[in-house]
Structure formats: C-alpha cells, structure tokens
C-alpha cells in the first residue's frame, strides 16, 4: 500500500534527521584524527585521554552531582507542593499552576539573566551553589507537572480509611498515598535529572568563573577547537541515559497496561 510505504518513509526520514548528528559524533569518537572532517583510522585514544583529563572529569562530576542533587531536591519540594495544591480552593490552585508555568514558558536566557542579577544584587558569589539553586528552580515545575495528575487521581477515602484504622498521618501517607503517586514522582525525577544534565544557557549565566559543567566546557572549547574526548564522553553518556530512560519507562508501561485491563 502506498499510504503505508509513505508513512514508513516519512518516519525513517525524520529518524535519520534526528539521529544523524548522534551517529556522526559516535563515529568520530573512534577517529584517530583530531579533526572532524577526516577519517584517518580507528582508535581508542580519545577514550583513554578522556579518563586522564582532569578538566573533563571535574566537569562531569559537577554535571552529575548538580543533576542528581537538583533533581532530588526539586522532587521533594515539587511533590510536597502538589499534595498541598490538591487541598487548595480553585483560585489559589490556578494561581499556583500559573506560577509553575513561568519558568517553563519563559526563555532560558531570561531565566538565566534574572537569576544572575538576583545573586549578584544580593551579594551571593557565583559558583557551584548558584548553579544548583538555578537548576532546582527550573526543575521544580517539571516535577509538579509529572506528579500533579497522579495526586489528582488519588482517592481521599482510602487515606481516610487508613487513618480510621489507626495509622498515623505519616504512615497513612507512605503506605497508601505514596505508592499511588510513585510513578509520577519517578518520572518527574527522571525528567528533572535529564533537563539538568542537558542545560547550557541557565548554567552559562549562573556559574561564575571557577566551575564548569559539561555543557559550558563544550561551549568554551568550541572556539578553541574541540577535543574528540568530549565526543567519547557524550557517546558513553548517551548510552547511559538510554539505559536510564529504558528503566524509567518500564513502570509507566506497566501502569498503562493496568489501565487497559480495567
């Protein structure tokens, strides 16, 4: 069938468009030449250099620590916020969700600049801490977006039943409510983690001079001529994230099937 062929062809074209640069980077990470335009033979030099480069390793450490911490803190603050918002009346609830949209809809450059101005105006010196705060700030809205639908679905009566049966509010929460919202919390955490990992613009404005994440390191190296070690690292990271996302998608899928079965 022509329609079917066209669909396949269109999907394949977009697929190539999306993955061509990723494939190019992966191939170039094994190139023995340091220039992007010539293939001079297979080599693992860049992978060896990667692990001996203190510059790259410290940027990687910063990136991972900031992504992990900011995602964790954002998940706690965001999940608590959802539970609170769920008990609000319509007007404050709309107001809160509107506020939640500001960092999501705002341009990254404006968010970055505004945070930088704020830190400097209040005499906070730019560094690890300011990047962490900035990342938590843009991560919370993603957590709220992921957790809010799950919180809305929870039944008040089951929580109340647990209380009637003698559970403390905290125990009732962790035994009854938390398992219900857990898929949302997990996907919110993963979304926040990956958003933090990929961010460049906001980090660029809030990082100060002494610290680099992978994104800012790449950006500063683009001008000097980038080292293929960074392709090697991004190849490893891409595969790692791929695995992370596969794991992250598993509970979602089960949940989906559960709904179908009903």
């Amino acid at each position: 069938m022509i329609g079917r062929f066209f669909k396949r062809f269109y999907l394949a074209t977009i697929f190539v468009f999306l993955y061509a640069p990723i494939a190019a980077l992966m191939v170039l990470s094994f190139n023995s030449s340091k220039y992007m335009s010539k293939w001079t033979g297979f080599s693992l030099t860049w992978y060896e250099q990667l692990f001996s480069s203190e510059l790259i390793m410290s940027a990687l450490r910063n990136t991972l620590v900031i992504a992990l911490l900011s995602a964790l803190i954002a998940t706690v603050i965001g999940t608590a916020a959802c539970l609170g918002i769920n008990h609000m009346k319509k007007v404050p609830r709309t107001l809160m969700m509107g506020m939640n949209n500001i960092p999501l809809m705002n341009a990254d450059i404006v968010t970055g600049i505004s945070l930088m101005l704020c830190f400097i105006a209040f005499g906070v010196s730019l560094g690890f801490g300011t990047v962490l705060i900035a990342h938590i700030t843009f991560n919370i809205p993603y957590v709220v977006l992921s957790v809010m639908p799950k919180v809305k679905q929870t039944e008040k009566s089951t929580y109340e039943a647990a209380l009637d049966l003698g559970a403390s509010p905290l125990k009732a929460f962790f035994k009854v409510v938390f398992p219900d919202i857990l898929p949302g919390v997990l996907s919110g955490f993963l979304l926040a983690f990956t958003m933090s990992l990929d961010d460049f613009i906001i980090t660029h404005f809030t990082k100060g001079a002494g610290i680099n994440t992978l994104s800012t390191l790449i950006y500063s190296e683009v001008r000097k001529g980038i080292k293929p070690s960074l392709y090697a690292l991004s190849t490893i990271l891409f595969l790692a994230v791929l695995i992370l996302l596969v794991i992250g998608n598993l509970p979602k899928k089960k949940n989906h099937e559960a709904i179908k079965e009903r």
């Binding site: 609000m88 809160m96 700030t137």
Partner: peptide, 23 residues
C-alpha cells in the same frame, strides 16, 4: 495540608518572581 506547598511558594517567590522583578 496546604502548608506542604510552603517551601515551593517560598522558592518560586525567591528565585523566580524576585529575579524577574530585578530585570
């Protein structure tokens, strides 16, 4: 229960609204 939103509100005011006001 509404108090659970407290940290979030403080955070958003401090790191979203005030910075935008500064711009």
């Amino acid at each position: 229960k509404k108090l659970l939103s407290g940290p979030y509100i403080v955070w958003m005011v401090g790191f979203t609204l005030i910075p935008l006001a500064l711009i």
